[in-house]
Nucleic acid binder design. Sequence first.
DNA 1: GTCTATAACGAGATAGAC
DNA 2: GTCTATCTCGTTATAGAC
Lengths: 196, 196
Amino acid sequence: MARKQGSHAETTAPKVRDAALRLFARHGYAAVSMRQIAQEVGVQAGALYRYTPDKQHLLFDLMRSHMEALFEARQAYAQPSDPLARLDAFTTFHIRFHLQRVDAVFVSYMELRNLSPENFAEVARLRSRYEGELEAILRDGVAAGVFEIADCKITTLAIIAMLTGLTTWYREGGRLPLDEITALYVRMVRGAVGVV
Amino acid sequence: MARKQGSHAETTAPKVRDAALRLFARHGYAAVSMRQIAQEVGVQAGALYRYTPDKQHLLFDLMRSHMEALFEARQAYAQPSDPLARLDAFTTFHIRFHLQRVDAVFVSYMELRNLSPENFAEVARLRSRYEGELEAILRDGVAAGVFEIADCKITTLAIIAMLTGLTTWYREGGRLPLDEITALYVRMVRGAVGVV
DNA sequence: GTCTATAACGAGATAGAC
DNA sequence: GTCTATCTCGTTATAGAC
């Protein structure tokens, strides 16, 4: 017996990534075997190696494409010129994007230790590039006299941690609609940069 | 053959916990074997079961005692009556405590998924009790007309996420001394609650 | 009685030959 | 794909040293 049907590479590849992401998020990278991923996809373990050189690369791919999707989505977003409007837009964008990919956010943060040094360096580079975008907004706002910030680098990290933290507790159908929650965060971020 | 020396329960017990915490933080709960922990302690795997009923309970114990140490340390801290002073004290306390226990913080957040439902419920209870302490400060500040907060619950979660995020990047001997970093966060937290 | 080394179980993962 | 031998896991049983 060989294969059951014709070519499936195009549908199988994303299935592998989806299954790996879900399993990594739920059980942790180290706890998930290639066999488990294969079973989830509906193929034999060996077949996975048509789509990834190894398990490590699979993890790296998930993190890298998460970051790439982040940049792509951000470019599709409106970029006002006014610093305060840009900050508000960043806040809104960050929340919406990350809430749609809770698994990827969790894995990208938790499994950094399981990346090889080179892969870690690449993910760290992408991450600090993203942080740089917020930092640039903050610096422009300070230069324009709109923000009051003692240290733009640390303020950047603090804001991103605050916003991303939302992914750990937000549930659809909760006490408040997402629009209202977002408005609350927009206001808190403004406060953190000294806008009254 | 049996034992090499006399009684060691009192020194071995904390060694087991220390080793488990360090290994769980570095490699993840699922990736760490009881044999690895035993080797780190300098004992055979079977001997670990003198100190824990099973691996799951070991993880739970680490998380629970992390929370208990948190409450204990907090009680030793000064509790001013002025809402703003209390908020500042909370910020300072939270940063200092969590920076001293980075491994426990990481494990407590990351390995929640590996707790049994009952153990998870207990840890969640302790955690929300701690959040309640900050929330109470915020409510008092609002009542006193000092803070301007639209939603105390969400503001609490946002502030804690912002502060705890510090543990992911802070390194001793970095660009700024901890005192200055703390001062920056005190200011940002103030801003987030509408204090100018 | 207290503590630990040793050995072993059953389950599941893994590696390699076919 | 499949079979098999081997490894590793959490955990238990037991017996010997303090």
